[in-house]
Write a protein that binds this DNA or RNA. Structure first.
Length: 111
DNA sequence: CACCTGACCGTGT
DNA sequence: TACACGGCCAGGT
């Protein structure tokens, strides 16, 4: 597996419960601001890694774009709601209150 | 081997 | 304010 994917997984595992972040924010933190799609691709490849809370990664609008990749059509929403978030029309309500940005929450990547 | 697609995002008009 | 488009790159057809 590529180093980039492993770095993505490392960041996703650091998302606190009840908080979410975006594909682009992770890509930017890893020094690849234009590789947001690769983050989504990494999530797609994370199915055999149960410890990756992929449901805490949404797009920049708070839309649950990856929900169709979870078993059942409402699992992603249910997981988030069980952590205290509100979702309507597949979109997180009041995203700003729950957004967790690795670029500010974590120290910069060393050298 | 070439082409297409996808859990995205920032920029330009 | 809204839409179009290029960049990114792995994997399937």
């Amino acid at each position: 597996m590529s180093l980039f994917f492993d770095q993505v997984y490392a960041v996703v595992q650091m998302i606190p419960p009840g908080r979410v972040t975006s594909y682009g924010a992770i890509a930017r933190y890893l020094g690849h601001p234009k590789s947001a799609r690769m983050v989504g691709y990494a999530m797609n490849a994370s199915h055999n890694r149960p410890e990756i809370p992929a449901h805490r990664v949404v797009n920049r609008n708070g839309l649950l774009t990856g929900k169709h990749h979870f078993p059942g059509s409402k699992l992603m929403q249910q997981l988030l709601e069980s952590e205290g978030l509100s979702i309507k029309n597949d979109q997180i309500i009041d995203l700003n209150n729950f957004f967790w940005d690795p670029n500010t929450a974590l120290p910069p990547i060393e050298i």
